[in-house]
Design a protein around this nucleic acid. Structure first.
Length: 792
DNA sequence: CTCTCCCT
């Protein structure tokens, strides 16, 4: 493990020194995170030896190699090392592997080191491994490698840092404050002169800051943007020294390590960094803007000390600095791990078996495996399939490798396009526009009103040609939409109802197009690129596709799904037959011959939603049962919750023909409730809580079983001769005694007590009011009657 | 408030 600041020459000196010291007989392989850096390192080392590249020192990067029989030092990029390891795990003829810029913690460097550590332990105890880094917290790596740590002092020029005096408030507009800071930095550094490098999180911020600065800086200053998507000639403009006046370069993180801008002695840092974050739930990545880490801030400040002592202005206070994280997260912590999972399956190891500096997160690994299964790269036991081996050999994301291996030559330019950044950023989402642009850029530009990034198109065309040689052989020309669907089976979108072009994706997530997009009416599309918003992703790139294409491509995964469910919204049972692919429905129609049983089962949910409506006769029955049950007798639970809990038993068999709220309103519950009681239970019920009270005259009076009940109303005279108070459900029946004109006279639960007590007073009143009626002195000895006294 | 960077 070697730790040394930038500019100490570890990249070019260490491999040569190892070679000259004769530490190993094998080749020395050095890993670089970027192609440009790999080629440059090889060139500089060859120059040191007074040779050409490809002799003692060579390089191998994607699509380009300069190595020969006599090559002893081979500079490679990260993907190459992975392929070397996978094809020959014991690394024959390699004596040492050097990981340059290991502090960047790229996914492939982490994987490469983990694999090399296993090789060194299991197969090659003579293999020399060396990690070289600038600002990494080197202790853990050295421990992981079980290796000594060597630290070297740097020789960069000193950089003086100036912080804000007071923190930016929570409501402060950060970009405005940055513009102020740039103006101040320019004024305070006029004696130094030279260029000013400003770090911003992204292209949008760069454009806005440039607009403001153009009116606020002196006339001799020229403001130049610098970011990855910028055409190459404009990038060069920012990198070259200014011919006259001062250059103010507004850059993204691209200027942190990838590009060195000559002639910079002042750095201004906004203190933010934009990073990709993979969301295992949706399988999509999105960008988040976060506070810069101390390691990044140090790296940015160092860019002011390349040529001479410099100045760094930070848009935060010295006091806030301690709250910043020390290092940015390793890529493995927040990346799409599909490719990594495939490599591990090919290696035949699970992540726990390997010595990862940071272990791959479980959620992302699970998502990766799900996708690999979908692509047929893993079998049911998570082992790699032959198809999976084929995918791992292709220099593409497994999705695109799958597409290329199945789709043939026509898939090659599309795979190249989808690997690159979109050459038509800002244009409508339609993939076919990109097809036109890639196939014939000149015609496209003369006919279409969109800005085409020619550099990107050129890379796509070159890469497309390379991939064509690796493509599976297919004779027929397949449409790009069908090819795209092969790569993104989880992102087939079906348009929802409504004016907005909102889509349900086959994987279950939601996505939306811009309202005015040319594809906004498409019933089905493949969402190829989105902003990854977990709520509802915005679709940036899509291909329209037909339902018949989807049927054709995914025949084995399309299922007929019959559904018969209660719809709360429609207040009725809806029976549908759908042809589904994941979360989308290719076809949907009314289920005409739906079995009655299924409707009845669905309607039970409707009953739970609408409520039982225990009123009228059914309510009376339920309360009678509850009354008797309260006395401890064995009857079914007829309380509303009890009945709702047992709908399947008593209601389901009776529910034929009921399928809407309307039907339910008309439905008579009484027969269903009655059927829930067997013969002896009915007998018990009629005995203990009879529906009627039979008066001494043989008339049947319904017993009221409402919440006041049980209760009857009866004319007083009809109860003459009754000397025992009638009982219901173990209690005395509440009797409402009425006058001959049906007016209430008295309520009693104790008839004998009434006859003996207050009857005397009642009799007095009644005789006055109803003289023609009998009011005997001793009612217990009289016959009941409803008539007046017979005329004499 | 339209996407950082990089690689087989």
């Amino acid at each position: 493990m070697l730790q040394a600041p930038p500019g100490t020459g570890k990249t070019t000196r260490v491999p040569l020194a190892m070679l000259q010291a004769g530490l190993t007989k094998g080749r020395i392989v050095m890993l670089e995170p970027r192609r440009l850096a790999a080629r440059a390192a090889a060139e500089r080392m060859a120059e040191t030896l007074g040779e050409k590249v490809g002799q003692t020192v060579g390089y191998r990067i994607r699509g380009d190699a300069r190595v020969s029989e006599q090559t002893r030092i081979e500079v490679v990029t990260e993907g190459i090392l992975t392929r070397m390891l996978q094809s020959d795990p014991d690394l024959p003829s390699v004596g040492a592997v050097l990981f340059d810029e290991f502090h960047e913690r790229s996914l492939n460097a982490d994987l490469g080191l983990a694999l090399c550590l296993e090789v060194a332990e299991a197969l090659r105890d003579d293999l020399i491994l060396l990690a070289m880094s600038a600002t990494l917290d080197a202790g853990p790596v050295a421990r992981l490698m079980d290796a000594p740590l060597i630290t070297s002092e740097g020789r960069a020029f000193p950089v003086e840092t100036r912080w804000l005096d007071t923190p930016l408030g929570p409501k402060a507009r950060r970009l405005d404050a940055l513009v102020d800071l740039v103006v101040r930095a320019e004024a305070e550094s006029r004696d130094i002169g030279h260029g000013i490098l400003v770090f911003l999180p992204g292209e949008g911020e760069i454009r806005r800051a440039a607009a403001q600065l153009s009116t606020r800086l002196p006339d001799n200053c020229s403001v130049l943007p610098l970011y990855g998507a910028l055409p190459f000639d404009q990038q060069r403009l920012a990198i070259q020294p200014a011919k006259q006046g001062r250059k103010v370069v507004l850059a993204t993180a691209i200027a942190e390590t990838s590009l060195t801008i000559r002639d910079v002695r002042v750095v201004v840092d906004i203190g933010q960094a934009r990073r990709a974050r993979f969301d295992p739930g949706s399988g999509m990545s999105r960008l988040v803007t976060e506070r810069v880490t101390r390691a990044e801030a140090t790296q940015r400040a160092g860019r002011a000390g390349r040529v001479a002592a410099g100045l760094c202005f930070r848009l935060w206070t010295k006091g806030e600095e301690g709250a910043l994280a020390a290092f940015p997260p390793a890529e493995i912590e927040s990346a799409d791990l599909t490719g990594l999972a495939l490599e591990l399956s090919l290696w035949g190891a699970s992540p726990q078996d390997l010595a990862f500096l940071t272990h791959p997160p479980e959620g992302a690994m699970a998502e990766a495996k799900t996708l690999l299964h979908m692509l047929g790269a893993l079998d049911a036991k998570d082992r790699i399939t032959d198809h999976g081996r084929q995918l791992a050999r292709l220099p593409l994301h497994p999705r695109l490798a799958h597409m290329l291996s199945l789709g043939g030559a026509e898939a090659a330019p599309l795979a190249a396009l989808l690997s690159e950044r979109d050459p038509l950023r800002g244009a409508p989402a339609d993939l076919s526009l990109r097809n036109e642009a890639v196939k014939d850029p000149k015609t496209f530009q003369s006919r279409r009103p969109f800005q085409l990034d020619r550099g990107t198109v050129e890379r796509i065309r070159v890469e497309g040609k390379r991939l064509r040689q690796k493509a599976g052989r297919t004779e027929d020309r397949v449409s790009w939409a069908r090819l795209a669907a092969l790569a993104y089976p989880d992102r087939i979108g079906q348009r929802r109802k409504g004016d907005m072009p909102r889509y349900v994706l086959s994987g279950g997530k939601g996505a939306v197009l811009d309202a005015g997009d040319t594809l906004a009416a498409a019933p089905f599309l493949v969402a190829l690129d989105t902003d990854g918003n977990p709520r509802e992703a915005r679709i940036r790139l899509a291909a329209q596709i037909g339902a018949s294409d989807i049927r054709d491509l995914f025949a084995g995964q399309i299922n007929r799904e019959d559904s018969c469910v209660w719809s709360k919204r429609d207040r009725r049972v809806i029976a549908r037959q759908r042809e589904v692919f994941g979360a989308i429905a290719l076809d949907e129609r009314i289920w005409k011959d739906v079995p009655a049983e299924a409707v009845a089962v669905a309607m039970l949910d409707g009953v739970r939603d609408l409520g039982l409506r225990l009123d009228g006769a059914s309510g009376r029955l339920a309360r009678r049962v509850e009354l008797v049950r309260a006395e401890g007798h064995d009857l079914p639970d007829f309380s509303e919750p009890g009945l709702l809990a047992t709908l399947e038993e008593w209601l389901l068999p009776m529910l034929t023909g009921v399928r809407s709220a309307e039907d339910w309103k008309r439905f008579d519950l009484l027969p269903a409730l009655k059927s829930a009681l067997d013969w002896s239970q009915t007998q018990l019920l009629d005995r203990l809580a009879p529906p009627h009270f039979t008066t001494p005259l043989g008339r049947k009076i319904p017993i009221n079983y409402d919440e006041h009940g049980p209760e009857i109303s009866v004319r007083l005279q009809e109860m003459f001769g009754v000397t025992q108070h009638p009982r219901v459900g173990g209690e005395a029946l509440k009797i409402n005694l009425l006058s001959p004109a049906q007016r209430p006279i008295q309520i009693t639960r104790d008839l004998p007590g009434f006859w003996a007590g207050s009857y005397a007073d009642v009799r007095k009143d009644m005789r006055a009011q109803y003289p023609k009626h009998p009011w005997p002195e001793d009612p217990t000895q009289s016959d009941p009657t409803l008539r007046a006294k017979p005329r004499k």
